[in-house]
Simulated scan of single mutants.
Amino acid sequence: MRSAARTVTRAAVAVIGAGALTLGLASTASAATVNRTVTDGGTTYNLSVTAPNTAAAAGANVTVSGTGYNQSQGIYVGLCAIPAGVNVNNPATWNSKPTPCLGGQDETGTTGASHWINNDWHWLSPNNSSPYTPGANGRGNFSVNIHVKAQISSSVTCGQGGVTCAIVTRADHFDSNDRKYDVYVPVTFS
């Protein structure tokens, strides 16, 4: 009796352990976190963005989360082509605006392809914008859903013709030339 109970218990532990291993592998393979430290106006921000690094080519809704942002700086979250000369592993090369982006700036919220995070004007576009949520040390956090697909435009498709893509954050249209808030999470499509 005792031996049978031990065997059942061991089998249950093995199944639970295998399930935990599978979940651990799935989350590691399906999402990535990129960190960046920037200084803006004498204040240092430790930015962190977590997003899926794979998606279905035909399209998928994905959740993108970020922490550590300057709540006074609005950002866009979206899928963009990585500009020529930008190495996503080297922030010193992040001198060009990530573009083109799926859905463009989408200030009206009609495509669902990007999301605008802005504490002052988010109410102007309730379909695709929201304020930061308060984080540690007064920094801004967010968690948003966006729709991504491989074809960004009629002439640009991620994974074709040398086009590589990433889910990015970038300064909003009030400061679109500011590269401090660019963060890239490379994504491939299957």
Rank of each mutant, 00 (worst) to 15 (best):
V49D: 06
F174I: 00
M1D: 05
N141H: 09
R6I: 15
G159S: 09
G42K: 10
K180I: 05
D175M: 03
N46D: 15
Q160L: 03
S155D: 12
N89D: 12
N177T: 15
N89I: 05
T157P: 12
A12G: 08
A58G: 05
V185H: 07
E107M: 13
A32R: 14
K180V: 06
L102V: 15
T54N: 04
A26C: 02
Q160A: 04
T33K: 03
T44F: 04
G41S: 09
S96T: 15
S27R: 06
G103A: 10
A14T: 14
T157K: 14
D178S: 06
S48F: 01
V86G: 09
F189S: 09
D182F: 12
S114Y: 10
S155P: 01
P134C: 03
V49Q: 08
I16G: 09
A171C: 05
A31R: 11
V144D: 02
H173S: 11
S65N: 08
P126K: 04
T39V: 07
S125V: 02
A26L: 13
V88F: 01
Q105F: 14
N141A: 09
A26D: 14
C80T: 11
Q105Y: 15
P83V: 08
G17V: 11
F174R: 07
T39W: 00
S30H: 14
N127A: 14
R179D: 10
A14Y: 11
A11D: 04
T43K: 15
N137Y: 12
N95V: 11
V163F: 00
L47C: 12
V187E: 03
T188L: 00
G78H: 06
A81I: 00
T44P: 04
V8F: 06
T43H: 12
G159D: 08
C158Q: 02
H147Y: 15
G159F: 09
G85S: 10
S143M: 04
L47K: 04
G140W: 08
S72N: 14
T50W: 07
N118E: 01
Y69S: 11
H122T: 01
V62W: 10
N70S: 06
A58P: 02
N118D: 12
Y45W: 11
I117W: 01
T63W: 05
A57V: 07
Y76T: 00
T9K: 01
T99C: 07
N89W: 08
G68N: 05
L79Q: 09
T169F: 08
V187I: 15
I82L: 02
L102P: 13
G103P: 08
Q71H: 00
G103F: 07
G161R: 08
S154R: 14
